[in-house]
């Protein structure tokens, strides 16, 4: 792996940063799906028998009132749930192209590399902008200085940050605005060359302009990545989602094509939520 990257020409790291595997696969087969996923926090069950599908190169929005377990679900998808003390998956499974991600031989860190996650609040690390982007890369790959530079540029280009920060790559990342920080977090996740992007309410701490910017990015990135976005904002889901999963009290209420769910929800609870009658 190491030698492979060392010998690789830098140009191959330029965008689109997408592995060849998913590209040719034009069918809407699920890249990621769960079967009867259950999880608990301490003794309290959070998810019960959640089965969802996230098709390749589509945006799947997970929605539901606060406390319904949507964050728990999205964290379970790339095994970051187990980082929360007391939280764990108790049953069922998460499958990425038919590989059980909770199988014994699967390393949770490898899962997190392939399935990246963006958190609610941007968390810039205490280092320069450039080093923030390279944080995961420096761990996972051994690149030449030239390759690293190209990669930083590519990832920042991809998230629309390059023109904004190209002159201050070596300044601390916490000087950026909130929206820029969130795009930086996206860039450093992209630098890991993931295949799936999970976003846990990525706009909840941002102003409207930054929110719009992130939504644009989601629309652009879905050509190359499978995206799962958690949101409690119905209009945001309408703008970005191809597919919708509606959750309530730890269970899946409805799921399907976005238009179908938005236009004619099958359950009254789902209709109530979409109409804003349930928070």
């Amino acid at each position: 792996m190491t030698t492979q990257f060392r010998s690789m020409p830098a140009t191959q790291l330029r965008p689109p940063l997408v592995p060849a595997v998913t590209r040719g696969d034009a069918s809407a087969a699920a890249a990621l799906h769960t079967i009867d996923l259950c999880s608990s926090y301490g003794d309290r069950g959070v998810l019960t028998n959640v089965s969802i599908e996230c098709p390749v190169q589509q945006v799947t929005a997970i929605m539901g009132p606060s406390g319904c377990g949507k964050s728990t679900l999205v964290k379970a998808l790339n095994r970051t749930l187990e980082l929360t003390p007391g939280a764990r998956v108790t049953g069922g499974g998460v499958f990425f192209r038919d590989q059980d991600l909770y199988a014994r031989e699967v390393d949770n860190r490898a899962v997190r590399k392939v399935i990246g996650i963006i958190h609610q609040r941007p968390q810039p690390f205490p280092m320069s902008i450039e080093e923030n982007v390279l944080f995961g890369v420096r761990f996972h790959q051994r690149l030449t200085r030239h390759q690293r530079h190209d990669l930083v540029e590519a990832c920042l280009q991809r998230t629309g940050l390059w023109t904004e920060v190209r002159d201050r790559l070596h300044q601390p990342a916490h000087q950026l605005s909130g929206g820029q920080q969130q795009r930086l977090c996206l860039a450093r996740t992209l630098a890991n060359q993931p295949e799936v992007l999970l976003m846990d309410e990525p706009c909840s701490s941002l102003d409207p302009a930054s929110t719009e910017r992130i939504e644009q990015l989601v629309a652009e990135l879905k050509r190359d990545y499978t995206i799962v976005i958690v949101t409690h904002n119905v209009s945001q889901a309408k703008r970005v989602a191809d597919r919708v999963v509606l959750m309530m009290e730890g269970q899946v209420l409805e799921q399907g094509e976005a238009e179908q769910v938005f236009d004619c929800p099958r359950t009254t609870a789902g209709a109530d939520f979409l109409a804003g009658r349930i928070g």
Binding site: M1, D100, A103, E105, V106, A110
Partner: peptide
């Protein structure tokens, strides 16, 4: 199930 090398970490020094 054949284990795919993608799902292991290939950083002996880091490990």
């Amino acid at each position: 199930m054949a284990s795919n090398p993608q799902w292991r970490l290939h950083q002996p020094r880091a490990l």
